[in-house]
């Protein structure tokens, strides 16, 4: 399935071709999970990523099926 990924924080720096308006269009297996998407993008624990789906922080095993876009954030703290 195709999914559009928007990257936040410093994550776009890892993808030189990244366009803030368009995001990244990814082809990924229909049964892919949040962790599969992170692996596909080669994002690791040290990137401190969080994915919000339907306004909630998704767990690593959560399936992406049915989604057309996701936002990947980096964990931040308030100030």
């Amino acid at each position: 399935m195709k999914i559009r990924v928007k990257l936040r924080g410093t994550l776009p720096h890892k993808f030189p071709e990244y366009d803030h308006q368009q995001g990244l269009d990814i082809d990924i297996a229909d049964e892919a999970s949040v962790q599969d998407l992170l692996n596909h993008l080669q994002l690791t624990d040290s990137d401190k990523c969080a994915i919000a789906i339907d306004g909630r922080i998704a767990k690593a095993e959560q399936k992406l099926k049915g989604l057309t876009s996701v936002n990947i954030f980096q964990i931040a703290h308030g100030g």
């Binding site: 969080a50 922080i57 767990k59 954030f73 964990i75 931040a76 703290h77 308030g78 100030g79």
Partner: peptide
């Protein structure tokens, strides 16, 4: 502020 707690899940 608990925003960090929420973002880490």
């Amino acid at each position: 502020n608990l925003v960090g707690e929420y973002l880490t899940g």
